[in-house]
Design a protein around this nucleic acid. Structure first.
Lengths: 194, 194
DNA sequence: TTACTATAGTGAGCAGTCCTCATGTTCCGG
DNA sequence: CCGGAACATGAGGACTGCTCACTATAGTAA
C-alpha cells in the first residue's frame, strides 16, 4: 500500500529532461544513428543512466516523437472545419514534413516502430493519420483536391518532398507547393471524368 | 616499364565480381549499412580481401553505382529529342527513382559522396544531372512542363517519391505520376500570367 | 619444371559502439 | 538523522568496422 513516492525523483527528472534535450540535438546533427554514449557524455551522465531512462534507442526516439505526434494530431484537429480546407491541408503538411525530416533516417525508423502494434507509437501515429485523413477528405469535399488521391499517398509525397529537400538545395516549401499542385483538382474539371 | 602483368590477376577479378554481386544483394536487403563482414563471408572471402578491393564502404557503393549512373546518363541522352518530351521525362524519372531507392539510405550516401569533388562519382553524377536537365528543358520548351521548375526540384521530387513509396504502401509509379501532375503546365495557361 | 616475385589473400587484433548489471550513491519520507 | 527505495555508475562482454603484418598464389621467365 503505502504512500511511496508516486512521482519520479527530482534528479531523475532533471536527467531525463537533459537527455531528451541533448538527444534531440544529436539526432538532428547525426541522424537517428547518433552515438548514445556521446549523448550521455554531453550531459555528464553515465551511459547506464541513459539506458535506465530509455532501455533502447527506439524508446528514446519514441519519447522525443510522442509530443510531436500528438501535437500534429491536435494541429490537424484544430484545422478541421477551416473555411479554407486546402490552405489548412498545406499548413499541416508543412509541419508534418518538418517533423518527418528532422532526423536523418527517421521515416524508416518510425515506419519500423509504428508498424509494430505493440509499440507505444502505434496508436499515436494511427490517430494522427486519421486526423490528417479528415483534413484531406475536407479538402476533397471542397473540390480543391482530387478525390482519387489517398491519405497514404499525400503523406508519402509530403514526407518524400521534405526528406528530399535535404539531399540537395531545394527549398522544402517550394517542393511541398509543387506536390500540392499535383494533387489539386485540375482547372476546368468539374467532377465527372471522361 | 617492364613486362609486369598490367592486368588484374584472374583470381582477383573473380573475387571482385563476386563481391559486387553479393554486396548488391546485401545492400538491397539491408540498406547501405549492411554488414561488410557478412558480404565477405557470403563470398567465402576474408574480410581483408574485401577491403583490399574496396578500401571503404563508399568505394564499394561507388563501384556499384558507377554503371547505373552512366546508364542513366545514356538513357537521358537517348531520350533527348524524343517527339514526346513529357513522356520521355517521365520514363527517365521512373528509372531514376528506381535507382535512387534501390538501397535504403542511398540518397544520403550519394549526396555525401558525390558532393565531394574529389570523389569518383562526382563527375558522373554531374553529367547525369546535365543530361536530365536537357530532358527537362525539352519538356518545358514543348510547353508540357512549367518553365519555373528547376532540375534540382524535379530530381528531388522524383527521388523523394520513390523513396517515400517504400515507407508505406504507396505505389511508386502512382506517386511519380502525381509529382508530374504538379510540374505540368496547368490547363488553360498560355504563358503570360495574371 | 622450377625459381622467382609482384599481386592477392588472410584473419587476429585494435578501436569504437551497444547494452547489461553488480555495485555504490542519493533523495526523500518519517 | 535514518532507512531504504530509487537512482547513478562505469567496467566489461558481445558485436562491428577497419588495419596490417604476414602468408599464399598466379603468372612470368629461365
Amino acid at each position: 500500500m503505502s504512500q511511496a513516492p508516486r512521482t519520479q525523483r527530482a534528479d531523475a527528472r532533471r536527467n531525463r529532461e537533459q537527455l531528451l534535450d541533448k538527444a534531440d540535438a544529436a539526432f538532428r546533427r547525426h541522424g537517428v544513428r547518433a552515438s548514445l554514449a556521446e549523448i550521455a557524455r554531453s550531459c555528464n551522465i553515465a551511459i547506464g543512466t541513459l539506458y535506465r531512462h530509455f532501455p533502447t534507442r527506439e524508446a528514446l526516439l519514441e519519447a522525443l516523437l510522442r509530443d510531436r505526434i500528438e501535437s500534429l494530431r491536435n494541429h490537424a484537429e484544430r484545422l478541421a472545419g477551416s473555411p479554407e480546407p486546402l490552405e489548412a491541408l498545406i499548413e499541416w503538411l508543412r509541419e508534418f514534413g518538418q517533423c518527418s525530416s528532422a532526423y536523418q533516417g527517421l521515416p524508416e525508423s518510425v515506419v519500423a516502430t509504428a508498424g509494430d502494434e505493440e509499440s507505444d507509437l502505434h496508436a499515436g501515429v494511427m490517430s494522427m493519420h486519421a486526423a490528417a485523413g479528415a483534413l484531406l477528405t475536407q479538402a476533397q469535399r471542397s473540390g480543391a483536391v482530387r478525390p482519387d488521391v489517398s491519405r497514404a499517398e499525400v503523406l508519402a509525397l509530403a514526407c518524400g518532398a521534405a526528406t528530399a529537400s535535404q539531399y540537395g538545395t531545394a527549398d522544402p516549401d517550394r517542393l511541398l507547393r509543387l506536390v500540392v499542385e499535383g494533387i489539386r483538382t485540375p482547372a476546368g474539371a468539374a467532377g465527372a471524368d471522361g
